[in-house]
Protein backbone atom coordinates (compact mmCIF):
# COMPACT_ATOMS: atom_id res chain seq x y z
CA UNK A 1 0.00 0.00 0.00
CA UNK A 2 1.54 3.23 -1.09
CA UNK A 3 0.46 6.71 -1.96
CA UNK A 4 -1.62 6.71 -5.11
CA UNK A 5 -2.93 9.31 -7.51
CA UNK A 6 -6.54 8.45 -6.71
CA UNK A 7 -6.20 9.55 -3.08
CA UNK A 8 -5.13 13.02 -4.14
CA UNK A 9 -7.87 13.34 -6.73
CA UNK A 10 -10.61 12.19 -4.37
CA UNK A 11 -9.40 14.56 -1.65
CA UNK A 12 -9.40 17.40 -4.18
CA UNK A 13 -12.92 16.47 -5.31
CA UNK A 14 -14.16 16.53 -1.71
CA UNK A 15 -12.55 19.92 -1.11
CA UNK A 16 -14.11 21.24 -4.32
CA UNK A 17 -17.58 20.08 -3.29
CA UNK A 18 -17.22 21.69 0.14
CA UNK A 19 -16.17 24.90 -1.58
CA UNK A 20 -19.17 24.86 -3.90
CA UNK A 21 -21.52 24.26 -0.98
CA UNK A 22 -20.05 27.26 0.84
CA UNK A 23 -20.12 29.38 -2.31
CA UNK A 24 -23.83 28.84 -2.82
CA UNK A 25 -25.22 28.78 0.70
CA UNK A 26 -23.22 31.40 2.58
CA UNK A 27 -24.72 34.84 3.04
CA UNK A 28 -21.63 36.72 4.17
CA UNK A 29 -19.78 38.12 1.17
CA UNK A 30 -16.35 37.55 2.71
CA UNK A 31 -17.18 33.89 3.25
CA UNK A 32 -18.01 33.62 -0.45
CA UNK A 33 -14.46 34.77 -1.22
CA UNK A 34 -13.07 32.17 1.19
CA UNK A 35 -15.04 29.48 -0.62
CA UNK A 36 -13.54 30.61 -3.91
CA UNK A 37 -10.09 30.21 -2.37
CA UNK A 38 -11.07 26.67 -1.36
CA UNK A 39 -12.06 25.92 -4.96
CA UNK A 40 -8.75 27.21 -6.30
CA UNK A 41 -6.85 25.14 -3.75
CA UNK A 42 -8.71 22.01 -4.82
CA UNK A 43 -7.68 22.64 -8.41
CA UNK A 44 -4.10 23.18 -7.28
CA UNK A 45 -4.15 19.88 -5.42
CA UNK A 46 -5.24 18.15 -8.63
CA UNK A 47 -2.42 19.78 -10.56
CA UNK A 48 0.16 18.72 -8.00
CA UNK A 49 -1.09 15.15 -8.01
CA UNK A 50 -0.87 14.94 -11.78
CA UNK A 51 2.55 16.58 -11.72
CA UNK A 52 3.91 14.04 -9.27
CA UNK A 53 2.38 10.88 -10.69
CA UNK A 54 2.11 11.47 -14.45
CA UNK A 55 5.05 13.78 -15.12
CA UNK A 56 7.64 13.33 -12.37
CA UNK A 57 10.65 14.43 -14.41
CA UNK A 58 9.56 17.62 -16.15
CA UNK A 59 7.32 19.01 -13.44
CA UNK A 60 5.01 21.14 -15.55
CA UNK A 61 2.12 20.77 -13.11
CA UNK A 62 4.01 22.70 -10.48
CA UNK A 63 4.52 25.59 -12.92
CA UNK A 64 0.77 25.64 -13.54
CA UNK A 65 0.19 25.61 -9.78
CA UNK A 66 2.41 28.66 -9.41
CA UNK A 67 0.34 30.46 -12.05
CA UNK A 68 -2.88 29.48 -10.28
CA UNK A 69 -1.51 30.87 -7.03
CA UNK A 70 -0.71 34.15 -8.81
CA UNK A 71 -4.19 34.46 -10.27
CA UNK A 72 -5.73 33.58 -6.90
CA UNK A 73 -3.81 36.36 -5.18
CA UNK A 74 -4.93 38.90 -7.79
CA UNK A 75 -8.50 37.66 -7.53
CA UNK A 76 -8.52 37.97 -3.74
CA UNK A 77 -7.26 41.56 -3.88
CA UNK A 78 -9.79 42.69 -6.47
CA UNK A 79 -12.65 40.74 -4.86
CA UNK A 80 -12.04 42.23 -1.45
CA UNK A 81 -11.88 45.72 -2.97
CA UNK A 82 -15.23 45.11 -4.68
CA UNK A 83 -16.75 43.88 -1.41
CA UNK A 84 -15.47 47.00 0.33
CA UNK A 85 -17.00 49.25 -2.34
CA UNK A 86 -20.34 47.41 -2.11
CA UNK A 87 -20.28 47.69 1.67
CA UNK A 88 -19.80 51.44 1.44
CA UNK A 89 -22.67 51.82 -0.98
CA UNK A 90 -25.25 49.45 0.49
CA UNK A 91 -24.09 49.34 4.13
CA UNK A 92 -24.46 45.56 4.33
CA UNK A 93 -22.58 42.42 3.33
CA UNK A 94 -25.61 40.20 3.07
CA UNK A 95 -25.53 38.46 -0.30
CA UNK A 96 -29.33 38.31 -0.39
CA UNK A 97 -29.59 42.09 -0.49
CA UNK A 98 -27.29 42.60 -3.45
CA UNK A 99 -30.18 42.41 -5.88
CA UNK A 100 -29.75 45.61 -7.86
CA UNK A 101 -29.55 43.69 -11.11
CA UNK A 102 -32.46 41.36 -10.36
CA UNK A 103 -35.27 41.65 -12.96
Amino acid sequence: MHLQLEYCLILAAALFCIGIYGLITSRNAVRVLMSIELLLNAVNLNLMGFSNFLDPVGIKGQVFAVFVITVAAAEAAVGLAIILAIYRNRDTIDMEQFNLLKW
Binding site: L3, C8, L11, L45, M48, G49, S51, N52, P56, I59, Q62, A65, V66, I69
Partner: peptide, 11 residues
Protein backbone atom coordinates in the same frame (compact mmCIF):
# COMPACT_ATOMS: atom_id res chain seq x y z
CA UNK B 1 1.95 19.66 3.83
CA UNK B 2 0.34 17.51 1.16
CA UNK B 3 2.46 19.32 -1.45
CA UNK B 4 5.58 18.35 0.48
CA UNK B 5 4.39 14.73 0.43
CA UNK B 6 4.06 15.06 -3.35
CA UNK B 7 7.71 16.15 -3.77
CA UNK B 8 6.91 19.80 -4.43
CA UNK B 9 8.92 21.79 -1.93
CA UNK B 10 9.00 25.10 -3.80
CA UNK B 11 5.25 25.22 -4.35
Amino acid sequence: GIYILLNADFV
